[in-house]
């Protein structure tokens, strides 16, 4: 995707700049951007480091294990054909919990394993099962308890209250999540299996 978007951005910008006389500005912006990106990265590094640490503390607790078991019950509501003690169920719950806790990098490998496990039981490999489609959907609807990236960026930009929009994010996330699940439930057909 970016192989297409990135060159188009640059080509269009330079042509437009030539036509409308903004080329000197474009020239300056290249060097300014590199410099400001470096300073942003230093702040981002600190915040990301701290939050990844905190999330790992939670991951290692017994409390987290119990949460995982509760989540597997919720899984039953969204995914009809997933059995409780199956591989799929385990990977799906790990993926959902990692997402909730903002551990995106833990969520992705677990999610891919879950998709593989579900595809193994899929009868027609040309189509995803309804459960597989629902699983991708819940991963495109972001639900996080602490939206770490935004807070990090806001902090690096000198916000007075970096986590000030956290309630708004929760409300929007939950409404979008529920709407998308309901849409998927009605829009995705069982015959796709």
């Amino acid at each position: 995707m970016l192989n297409l978007v990135w060159p188009i951005f640059i080509i269009i910008s330079i042509i437009y700049a030539c036509l409308f006389g903004t080329l000197p500005k474009v020239n300056d912006s290249i060097f300014d951007t590199i410099e400001s990106t470096m300073s942003l990265l230093f702040t981002l590094a600190g915040t990301m480091c701290f939050w990844s640490g905190i999330m790992n503390v939670l991951e290692k607790t017994d409390f987290f294990l119990k949460m995982r078991k509760k989540i597997s019950k919720v899984i039953k509501i969204i995914f009809r054909d997933i059995e409780n003690d199956s591989k799929e169920s385990e990977f799906i719950s790990l993926n959902i919990l990692s997402n909730l806790l903002g551990l995106g990098n833990a969520a992705t490998p677990m999610g891919i394993k879950a998709m593989d496990a579900m595809d193994e039981k899929n009868k027609n490999k040309n189509y995803m099962t309804k459960d597989m489609m629902m699983f991708i959907l819940i991963n495109t609807a972001s639900i996080q308890i602490i939206p770490t990236t935004v807070i990090a960026i806001r902090a690096s930009l000198g916000s007075k209250n970096p986590s000030g929009m956290i309630f708004h994010i929760w409300i929007v996330s939950i409404v979008v999540f529920i709407s998308v699940i309901l849409l998927g439930k009605t829009f995705f057909k069982k015959e796709d299996n």
Binding site: L2, W6, F9, I10, I12, S13, I14, Y16, A17, F20, T22, L23, K25, V26, D28, S29, I30, D32, T33, I34, S36, T37, L40, L41, L44, A45, M48, C49, F50, W51, S52, G53, I54, M55, N56, V57, E59, N105
Partner: peptide, 29 residues
């Protein structure tokens, strides 16, 4: 956990530089 974030950051760093420059060109032009 904190250490594991460093490798992620190094991974996204080149993407950030590349995109920041291209997007700023788009904006400034």
């Amino acid at each position: 956990g904190a250490k594991s974030s460093i490798s992620i950051l190094l991974e996204i760093f080149p993407t950030l530089i590349g995109l920041f420059v291209a997007i700023n060109m788009l904006r400034v032009s």
